[in-house]
Amino acid sequence: MTTGESKNGVEDIIICRDVHKWYGEFHALRGVTTTIKKGQVVVVFGPSGSGKSTFIRTINRLEEHQRGQIIVDGIEMTNDVRNIDAIRRDVGMVFQSFNLFPHLSVMRNITLAPTKVRKLPSAEAEKIAMELLERVGIPDQAYKYPKELSGGQQQRVAIARALAMQPNIMLFDEPTSALDPEMIKEVLDVMKELAESGMTMIVVSHEMGFAREVANRMMMFDEGVIVEEGTPDQIFNDPQNDRTKLFLSQIL
């Protein structure tokens, strides 16, 4: 399912050129330019308010960029609703606060979008959901409600829910920040397995152990721009930018 084979056969799966975003007067993204290739795992980090969350939220249009160009899997992000919906079907997202639907069972959380958007028959959608729940290690929770699950289990359901749409790209917005320490590992393990399967992933996170082990690339955000990027080896052992050095010294 997640062979990393881009639907449209594009090698550069995400292209951002000079992306700007304002909240009112506040200039949140100040010209982000980068290209992410198919199958890459990119960890985005940086101080609070640096624009890293805003950046990944522009990739599936949860935030609208006001200048520049974003091309996802060969489709340019414009105001055309059909383009936006097409991109969203292709891009899965996992949130810091899980955002499971509390009024629906775990199973229904996962099958809702495939049955409504992809028009899958519910038996087939449930079969896929069960496979995904097995993949994230909680098939026995399928008919419970989100509030009956631990935080780590909820986040794994959220990952399964996103995967059910068979996306080519997965965005993670601080997926472990709201978790108790003993649950972080179970979520990171699922993400690691996903990365090994070839999924293109952008992960906003300060889990530096995960970054070192799994990421191909790291991006340091500060004041709305990428101030430094490189392999984990370069970033951890030989950071060039003073702000990167300062930030790493504060969190490591």
Binding site: G92, V117, R161
Partner: peptide
């Protein structure tokens, strides 16, 4: 609502 939209639901 964000989670719904991110899943591609109109």
């Amino acid at each position: 609502a964000e989670a719904g939209r991110a899943l591609g639901l109109p």
